[in-house]
């Protein structure tokens, strides 16, 4: 019934995304440094696309599994583990170590750390908790707090110069991303996206809840643990690439719900991905052109997202 309207919305969002991306790439293009500027901007747009997909898709799936619209995968403690990995590198081997200075090595170490953490937590604990998603999430919160505290503790001990360098990895940034990392991450995210899209109908069924899903023939426990792993991989690679930026997921998925007013994952997945890319592009333009790199993009997104949430809550409470 609403499919026509929603298809139009998707089309509009796609055109808007392309237009904004085009504008970003071409705006104030300096022909003297064209061969430097153009690839660098295209790289950034590609990075934003990859991160946008990763964040939006993982958040949509996560909210479907938990049947909760104000949760993001960051509750599984992945952001904290990422920060912990960065902090412990600085703490033990110092800021001049290739573990921190070499993008490639740092990416690999972060990604491996995150994936090992999630596989351990999810594969092992999922069985141990008798497949209870919420028990698993509670453990995730506790572990997240634990790693956060450890990081804070070590940050107190390192010298202030090291801390300043460490601070760079606390905020997501799309500046100066290593080319080959973009392609590696892109390949992984694309693979995950294909796995998800091949079977997006069963996401619709999972949204009905466990009992209905099993009744309709979904192998629920296996499917959910598979989806949780996909989420973990998506969050891990995007965090390892640009840094923690999970609040974006909350913002864009809720915007997608507001706009599409549907339960269908075809629209939610594509819609929130497009909104995520648009948000990142606008945020990046603000940091680059308005604030002249004085403000990090994640700060802007958190600000806008926070304001949006307050508005959303006021609106809901008035109903």
């Amino acid at each position: 019934m609403h499919n026509g309207k929603n298809n139009r919305l998707l089309l509009i969002l796609t055109i808007a995304t392309l237009a904004i991306a085009g504008f970003y790439i071409l705006y104030q293009l300096n022909f003297d440094i064209l061969f430097y500027q153009l690839p660098s901007r295209v790289n950034r747009v590609v990075t934003m696309l990859i991160v946008g997909i990763a964040i939006a898709v993982s958040t949509v799936i996560f909210q479907t599994i938990t049947k909760n619209r104000i949760l993001t995968p960051s509750i599984m403690g992945l952001d904290s583990v990422y920060l912990f990995i960065q902090t412990i590198i600085v703490f033990i081997v110092g800021t001049s170590s290739p573990l921190l200075t070499n993008d490639f090595v740092n990416y690999l170490v972060s990604m491996l750390g995150l994936v090992v953490f999630t596989v351990l937590v999810f594969k092992y604990l999922f069985r141990l908790t008798g497949n209870h998603v919420f028990l698993l999430l509670l453990i995730g919160i506790i572990l997240g707090t634990f790693f956060n505290s450890l990081s804070t503790f070590m940050q107190m001990l390192i010298n202030p110069d090291d801390f300043l360098i460490l601070q760079n990895s606390m905020f997501a940034s799309f500046n100066a991303i290593n080319d080959s990392l973009i392609w590696i991450t892109g390949a992984i995210v694309l693979l995950m996206l294909i796995i998800v899209l091949r079977d997006f109908h069963s996401l619709d069924v999972i949204a009905l809840g466990r009992d209905h899903a099993i009744n309709l023939g979904i192998n629920y426990d296996r499917k959910v643990s598979q989806l949780l792993l996909i989420i973990a991989v998506l969050v891990s690679v995007s965090t390892a690439l640009v840094g923690p930026i999970m609040f974006l997921g909350l913002l864009v998925v809720n915007l997608a719900h507001e706009m599409f007013k549907t339960f269908k994952h075809r629209y939610l997945l594509l819609g929130s991905t497009l909104i995520a890319v648009i948000t990142l592009l606008l945020g990046q333009m603000l940091t680059q052109y308005v604030f002249n790199q004085a403000v990090e993009i994640s700060v802007i997104i958190n600000l806008v997202g926070g304001v949006y949430f307050i508005i959303l809550m006021l609106k809901e409470s008035r109903r």
Binding site: M1, H201, S202, D204, V205, A207, L208, H212, L216, G217, H257, K261, T262, F263
Partner: peptide, 19 residues
Amino acid sequence: LKITVRELISFGRFPYSKG
């Protein structure tokens, strides 16, 4: 969920049609 009566009833066909 934002789901209509017909859409929900359609889920009954999922085992056959897979969506």
